[in-house]
């Protein structure tokens, strides 16, 4: 599957996750987003900047001794999830979801999706 197809498949499996995007944290930009995402380029860039702040895009751990593999930011009505690629630590999967997302199941599926995308890249 192409990256775009992978993102669409993840969105199809978890409709509560409206945006699924593959990003380059070093460049600070989203490379591909799922076809159903309603976010424009500016909103995607903001999402990428927020994820970079949480994941330590510059390699510096934001909190603690190690840079995180994943980050979640929840506020009323919105949940941001960011997963760092184990193969390419500057690449990440960014997701914007409704609060009712099945968090445990989504984390497993998202990380598997990211591994497949990174392996093909």
């Amino acid at each position: 599957m192409t990256v775009s197809e992978e993102l669409d498949a993840l969105h199809g499996q978890f409709p509560a996750c409206g945006t699924v995007a593959y990003a380059d944290l070093a460049a600070g930009m989203v490379l591909v987003a799922n076809s159903q995402s309603t976010l424009d380029r500016h909103a995607l860039d903001k999402l990428c900047a927020q994820a970079g702040c949480l994941l330590g895009g510059d390699g510096t751990p934001p909190l603690g001794a190690a840079a995180p593999d994943f980050a979640l930011a929840r506020e009323t009505g919105r949940l941001l999830l960011a997963f760092k690629s184990p193969q390419q630590p500057t690449d990440a999967l960014l997701c914007l979801a409704a609060p009712e997302l099945d968090l445990a199941a989504f984390q497993i599926a998202a990380q598997a999706c990211l591994v497949r995308i990174s392996a093909e890249g």
């Binding site: 900047a49 995180p68 979640l72 506020e75």
Partner: peptide, 22 residues
């Protein structure tokens, strides 16, 4: 840094990072 990217922190928020500790 988080407030700069995510906006004011007056409304309740939760951020989780992992794994980052021993």
């Amino acid at each position: 840094s988080f407030a700069k990217h995510a906006g004011p922190l007056e409304t309740p928020r939760l951020v989780s990072l992992g794994p980052v500790l021993e």
